[in-house]
Amino acid sequence: MKRFSMRVWLGWFLLLISLVLLIWGFFPYKRERREMRILPQEMQLPSMNEVVPNALRFA
């Protein structure tokens, strides 16, 4: 009976450890989401002010 209960305890311990590993392995992590509004004014051809640095423009 003593050997029998030892085997059961070992089985339960293994089950517990395995469950922890499985939960950690399959746990879905949170995903971040960031939204940004883009205006038409930001989607236009780059102007000279944006392309050429100040030092060059006024040289």
């Binding site: 085997r7 059961v8 339960w12 089950l15 450890i17 395995s18 499985l22």
Partner: peptide, 12 residues
């Protein structure tokens, strides 16, 4: 975890 679960189930 999967192997341990099967083994633990068989033992207990």
């Amino acid at each position: 975890g999967a192997i341990g679960f099967l083994l633990g189930s068989w033992l207990s």
